[in-house]
Design a protein around this nucleic acid. Structure first.
Length: 108
DNA sequence: ACGCCCCCGCGTCAGTCAAC
DNA sequence: GTTGACTGACGCGGGGGCGT
């Protein structure tokens, strides 16, 4: 089989594109937050909240892109597997017909 | 040229899950 | 309980095909 066949190997009921691998890398240019103990004024708190939100959106944006890429790959993989199985099915049907012919000619 | 429809990719939100 | 990663769902905008 040309397909990897690992879509159910690791997690049972989870599609391959859903298998979660830990990612700790941040997008370029992202700076981690200052520790909460260093914050003082309400303005600083608000700026920190805004910065955190922007960071979260940025990361989620990247995660969504990656998620869609994996999903497309997964679907592509399934489609090629379908193609392989269809060819295999045709061959088996053909073989069955041949065997039927042989059997019927013998009983005649 | 124009409107309409369909498809695709994107950004965002909300919910879930696992790790801590 | 909190946090971060992941993903389904939703809405939006752009591009292409098609009929008028």
């Amino acid at each position: 089989m040309a397909v990897t066949g690992d879509e159910t190997a690791a997690t049972g009921d989870m599609p391959a594109y859903q298998i979660r691998t830990p990612t700790t890398t941040l997008p370029q240019g992202v700076v981690m937050a200052a520790s909460p103990g260093t914050l003082h004024s309400p303005q600083q708190m608000a700026e920190e909240a805004t910065r955190k939100r922007e960071l979260r959106l940025l990361k989620n944006r990247e995660a969504a892109k990656e998620c869609r890429r994996r999903k497309k790959e997964y679907i592509k993989c399934l489609e090629s597997r379908v193609a392989v199985l269809e060819v295999q099915n045709k061959k088996l049907i053909q073989e069955l017909e041949t065997l039927k012919d042989i059997c019927s000619s013998k009983t005649d």
